[in-house]
Simulated scan of single mutants.
Amino acid sequence: MIKTFIYQLSETILRGEEMSWKRGAYPEFTLEDAVATLFLLKTPRGRKQISEDLDLGEGSVRTLLKKLAKLELIESKQKGHYLNEKGLNVLFQILTLFSEPAEVEKVENMPTYALIVKNPPQFKSIDLRDEAIRYFAKGAMILVYKAGEIVFPEDERPLKETLPRLAEDLKKLSPKEGDLIVVTWAENRADAIKSAIHVALTLKKNELPKEILEVGE
């Protein structure tokens, strides 16, 4: 009976911890969350909506928004939080490095997002794919735009030969010669978006505006 009671107590504690996490009792967030939030706040959004969009606890979102406000990047009104002039300037600087993740043709029937990394440094595709998976993606493709085609950098094989609909979607992102294209997919939309951002940050973190880097400090 004592063992049964201890087991039930342990289960209750674990369920309580899980519920607390879902309610956002642990205010933790990543640089990827901060960048994704800047993209979201081009239009006003409430804290609950941000929490749902990023699959992030409301406590974490509250802390993140407080930091963004302290850095004078966002303001609030009845409709929600939004980027002010300084915040829009920081976002513009980020967009000179990589684009906002865009939803594209599904891969493996999962939510799939893509972004363009501009003027990429030298990279190894396998390392970048590993980074995406480490950040909760189920899979990733690292592609480049070369001579008017989206190709795999290892052998310059055109993506359209195997995934023509995805290749067509990616061309709508208007890549330029030499651009790197990150495609990530995951079981939920938030993980697909943030894993793509994670790959971009792996390549471009050192070029980010200091204001966004300060959010994570």
Results as ranks from 00 to 15, higher is better:
Ala36Glu: 02
Asp155Phe: 06
Pro111Ala: 13
Gly16Thr: 13
Thr184Gly: 04
Lys77Trp: 13
Tyr135His: 15
Leu14Trp: 11
Glu72Asp: 15
Arg157Asp: 10
Glu168Asp: 13
Thr63Pro: 10
Glu156Ala: 09
Ser20Arg: 13
Glu28Gln: 13
Arg15Leu: 05
Asn89Leu: 14
Asp127Glu: 15
Ser99Asn: 07
Tyr7Pro: 03
Ile94Ala: 02
Val104Trp: 06
Thr112Tyr: 04
Val107Lys: 02
Leu68Cys: 09
Gln122Thr: 12
Gly24Tyr: 04
Gly57Ala: 10
Glu177Tyr: 06
Glu28Trp: 06
Lys176Ile: 03
Ile74Thr: 02
Phe5Trp: 09
Thr63Asp: 15
Glu149Trp: 08
Asn109Thr: 14
Pro175Ile: 00
Asp191Val: 02
Lys86His: 12
Ile74Cys: 08
Leu97His: 06
Asn89Val: 09
Phe5Met: 09
Gly80Arg: 05
Glu168Pro: 08
Ala200His: 04
Ala140Gln: 08
Ile181Phe: 05
Lys160Asp: 11
Leu88Cys: 08
Glu18Tyr: 10
Arg165Val: 08
Gly216Gln: 10
Leu203His: 00
Thr37Asn: 09
Pro120Gly: 08
Glu85Asp: 14
Glu211Gln: 09
Arg47Pro: 13
Glu72Ala: 14
Val199Gln: 01
Ala114Phe: 11
Ala192Ser: 12
Ala114Ser: 14
Ala114Gln: 06
Ile150Trp: 01
Thr112Pro: 00
Trp185Ile: 06
Phe98His: 05
Leu88Gly: 11
Leu159His: 01
Lys118Thr: 01
Lys146His: 12
Ala69Trp: 05
Ala200Ile: 02
Leu54Gln: 03
Ile13Tyr: 10
Ala186Asp: 06
Leu180Gln: 05
Gly80Gln: 11
Lys172Ile: 08
Arg165His: 13
Glu214Thr: 02
Glu187Ile: 03
Leu65Asn: 03
Ser125Val: 06
Arg62Gln: 10
Gly57Tyr: 01
Glu187Cys: 04
Ile126Met: 14
Arg165Glu: 12
Thr202Tyr: 13
Val144Ile: 14
Gly80Glu: 08
Thr30Phe: 03
Tyr113Met: 10
Asp155Gly: 06
Gly57Lys: 00
Ala36Tyr: 05
Phe92Val: 11
Ser195Cys: 12
Gly80Asn: 11
Leu71Asp: 07
Lys79Arg: 15
Leu208Thr: 08
Phe29Thr: 00
Gln8Glu: 14
Ile13Trp: 09
Thr30Val: 07
Tyr135Ile: 09
Arg45Glu: 12
Glu100Gly: 06
Leu213Arg: 02
Leu91Trp: 07
Met1Asp: 12
Leu14Asn: 15
Phe29Gln: 02
Asn84Trp: 06
Lys204Ala: 02
Glu187Met: 04
Trp21Gln: 14
Phe39Asp: 01
Glu17Ser: 11
Asp53Phe: 13
Arg45Trp: 01
Leu41Asn: 01
Tyr26Ala: 10
Glu131Leu: 07
Lys106Ala: 15
Leu64Arg: 03
Ile13Gly: 04
Thr43Leu: 09
Lys138Arg: 15
Leu14Ser: 14
Leu71Ile: 00
Leu71Asn: 02
Pro44Ala: 03
Lys138Leu: 11
Lys118Arg: 14
Thr37Phe: 05
Ala192Phe: 09
Gly16Met: 10
Pro111Phe: 08
Val183Pro: 01
Ala25Lys: 04
Lys42Gln: 14
Leu73Pro: 00
Ala69Thr: 14
Lys48Met: 13
Ile6Gly: 02
Glu17Val: 10
